[in-house]
């Protein structure tokens, strides 16, 4: 049976606590992975591994980290993602709230925007959830 949203959040929280050494109460849905929880690029390898194990799923890197879009000259101009690029990002990452990024689509800002809630919504899209 598919897990509930709460169960998804609890498991995501456990993975983040273990991978990042943060406290339980720091992992809120609104917390950003990089800014609030201090995740560095190498931590994502660890986080992805733990999430795959916890949920029995496979997580291709490109689904969470659309580097190919962010480095594609077609979608990036002067270090900023173009409107076409935003469309591509939304297509690739329907689980992520990109409204803040749209206001200032600087490529270097992108990695700092992913929140715990985005991650939960991504997992939900992979495993399905019961309400």
């Amino acid at each position: 049976m598919a897990p509930s949203k709460e169960e998804v959040f609890e498991k995501v929280k456990e993975a983040l606590v273990d991978a990042l050494g943060v406290d339980d109460d720091e992992v809120t849905p609104q917390a950003t992975m990089v800014g609030d929880l201090g995740a560095e690029s190498i931590d994502f390898l660890d986080i992805v591994f733990r999430l795959e194990k916890a949920f029995g799923i496979e997580i291709p890197r490109s689904e969470l980290f659309p580097e190919d879009i962010l480095t594609n000259a077609q979608y990036v101009r002067d270090g900023r993602v173009t409107p076409d690029g935003i469309v591509e990002l939304k297509k690739r990452m329907p689980f992520a709230d990109l409204s803040q990024f749209e206001a200032n689509p600087a490529v270097q800002e992108f990695s700092t925007l992913l929140t715990v809630n985005d991650l939960c919504r991504y997992i939900q899209s992979k495993v399905g959830v019961t309400e």
Binding site: L45, F49, E52, R61
Partner: peptide
């Protein structure tokens, strides 16, 4: 080895 992928291993 717990996990091995293109970008690394645990």
């Amino acid at each position: 080895i717990q996990d091995l992928r293109d970008d690394g291993a645990i």
